[in-house]
Amino acid sequence: MSAPVIEALDVVKRLGTGARQVQALKGVSLSLAGGEMALLMGPSGSGKTTLLSVLGCILTPTEGRVNVLGKSTEGARPGDLARLRRNHVGFVFQSYHLFPTLSALDNVRLALDVRGEPANRAIAKARDVLSTVGLAHKVDAFPSELSGGEQQRVAIARAIVGNASAILADEPTGALDTENGHAVMAILSRIAQDQSRGVLVVTHDTRLTPFATRIIRMEDGRICEED
């Protein structure tokens, strides 16, 4: 296993203000290394998604530190965090979050377009990555023309097309049947075989544990167990 691609050090995250404030993360330390396929499990409200958001530089920690490729994000401005996300982090969401008005190819190309990649090169890369996830024949299809599993594969293609070091997936199989869920997890496992990439999957689904190289369990804002 390689060096950490992303790590949280004693991260505390408080959400809300005043009487409605809650401490979602209570001093969490977690490191995701290249070549690692980690599952983050735990009951609802345990802080899994908040931790994923903090690791993905969408939320900033209230206390503690996040390092991306060994570099601290402390004091980074929103623009700097956005740059980190587009260059080093790939997200996969439960409900895919594809653009309904764009084809599969353009949905994937979008991740490169926001980085300013030249259009023709971006199209070639997007086409290639779609082929990698088994959707070479669906490049021109719109999300409404794709099954849930295919949509999630497009979302994965979007997450990996920019060579992100960390792929963070929030319940990626939550909306899929077992067969499609396993297919998606297989693709994520394959991605994690690349020593330069780490994959962290938030899930409730214990049937996915066979895909993991490591399982982290959270409860009440803390990591309570690691296998």
């Binding site: 290639d128 997890m185 297989a186 693709i187 496992s189 690349d194 066979p210």
Partner: peptide, 15 residues
């Protein structure tokens, strides 16, 4: 822990 389920082979390299 490692995957017990065999990942289907993907048609192309990721890079």
């Amino acid at each position: 822990m490692s995957a017990d389920v065999e990942a289907p082979s993907l048609p192309r390299s990721l890079n």
